[in-house]
Amino acid sequence: MPTYELALMLRAMPKTELKTSLKRISHAIFDRGGIIRSIENLGFRAMPYKTSAHGLVHREANYFVIKMDTGTKAVADLREEYSRDVDVIRQRIFKSQEAFDKTCTLEEELLPPAYRKEVQKMIDVGKTQVNRFKYKFKYNSGLDYYPFQR
């Protein structure tokens, strides 16, 4: 089971209601055989843009991030269930980020173009292809001499 992050925005409501709706949301995960790794509360704050959900316009939201392990097939099902939940303004499910283990390639990128590997590759590709933009004189045009300088 891969780890997913569920970014939740819940509507403004008192704490007791928030508790019940969070419980409902997490039980939906448990019912599909998933587990919750952590629930983070990012606080109640103004949204950067107004959002309309279930016939209401929301300008503030309770932000939560739930880290969970579920089957890949359960994700679409969960998303559908949360879309029907009137307390959920907006929900996004992302795959949890893997560790970034690439070395910095800035030094190679700052080289002059002729030394960059991708530019060299482009030049090699260009050499194998015909230049469509170069005008080529056609000898069957009726002139019996070549009109340009050789």
Binding site: A7, M9, M47, P48, Y49, T51, A61, Y63, R90, R92, F94
Partner: peptide
């Protein structure tokens, strides 16, 4: 893009 989509950040 993700953060803007999650309404953490304005567009």
């Amino acid at each position: 893009r993700k953060a803007q989509n999650c309404a953490y950040m304005p567009y």
